[in-house]
Design a protein around this nucleic acid. Structure first.
Lengths: 200, 200
DNA sequence: AGTTTTTTGTAGCGAACGCTCTAGAATGAT
DNA sequence: ATCATTCTAGAGCGTTCGCTACAAAAAACT
């Protein structure tokens, strides 16, 4: 058949993710990528085709290992309302601990790359839609379980929560302040509260 | 004194704004800038010092002509609640009409440039804070006028609205869909509603 | 007019860019 | 062992990057 690849392909693509995540698409050079991936330039082109194709691969890797992993983890407990709240709480926690202020690769790409590359734009939009669908799915499940108001608009609130999520990830990169980020989310979580017997 | 500048400085800086706005900081070259500004490279360096200094100048120009202008325009009518609602409605309208999907230069910079440049980061954070302060100021005025609930948390809701605004501008660049963006905003605007006599 | 100061166009600096070429090393098939 | 195939390392392709040196041009001073 031919010579076998010598490098660890998982470690390599993770290195690419780290590069694009930290610096963005344009500001990351092929030499940076190869160095962090632990391979030579020729191997990079042989294995991935080029910078743009590698970026698409890195996006998918990130989606699988970060975004979808988080969704699956929070959804596994079968507590839909808790899943939504814990999901958002984790985003805030991670944003505050994120000393390098890397944010979320998908959100960064939505602003950086997607508007200038229709194909990548669709990929990113698809990943964001997965997050919105996670919200909607769990709102509906929580409604069936009586954990949220009966008349809640699952589709509408899921879009609202996606917007909140994007806002947090942007704001955290310029002002990673716990009180501020909590304030962004709080009214959204209040939407999930079953209204108490009115005190008006 | 010496020879006078031959180019229109306002048109030049507007050209720079357009470049950075459309393509971002890294992806915009000094040659692109000079061409769109209608000047030569030497004049650019003579007048602005360099790419980064020009970017800071372009940011300030954008803040004055776009962000602050919009704030002042909506606040001028003296209808604080209406100012908030119209402000957000205008953002959505502009995002949907924005065929090039340029979004907002301040928001783009918050994700692109700010995390990698502390000084510019503070500048951007300052501009975003101006928007949040606009929200808070008008929430408080609306409360005094009885247009919003008496017990509203002006600071907290202003942060929420800023988050919503950022989320819209990100989402609009990958999925400029009217129904989606309206759904993001609606629950936030509901916070401003004076609760009716309870129907629970 | 002559001097000084600033702006302008051109040309080009060294460095980095994405990418490719080439020679050789490492594999499975014959 | 030989072959065909694949992968790797290094050099280097042409281009573009941010920026600067230089001299001509244009203004305000004496």
């Amino acid at each position: 058949m031919g010579r076998l690849k010598e490098f660890d392909q998982d470690k390599a693509i993770d290195g690419a993710v780290d590069c694009f995540w930290a610096r963005g698409y344009e500001a990351t050079s092929v030499r940076d990528l190869a160095a962090h991936m632990g391979i030579g330039g020729a191997s990079l082109y042989n294995a991935y085709g080029g910078k743009r194709a590698l970026f698409v691969a890195a996006l998918e890797r990130y989606a699988n290992r970060s975004s979808r992993e988080r969704i699956a983890r929070h959804e596994a407990a079968g507590q839909p309302r808790q899943a939504i709240e814990a999901f958002l709480a984790e985003i805030i926690d991670r944003s505050l601990k994120d000393r390098a202020r890397k944010g979320c690769l998908l959100v960064n790409s939505a602003l950086d790359v997607a508007p200038h590359d229709a194909e990548i734009g669709k990929v990113v939009a698809g990943y964001l839609e997965e997050i919105r669908a996670f919200f909607q799915r769990n709102i509906e499940a929580a409604r069936r379980a009586g954990q949220v108001p009966r008349d809640i608009d699952a589709a509408g609130v899921s879009a609202h929560l996606l917007g909140i999520l994007l806002g947090i990830r942007v704001l955290a990169r310029t002002r990673p302040d716990r009180a501020l980020l909590d304030s962004v989310v709080r009214p959204a979580l209040d939407l999930l509260n079953v209204p108490a017997i009115s005190k008006a």
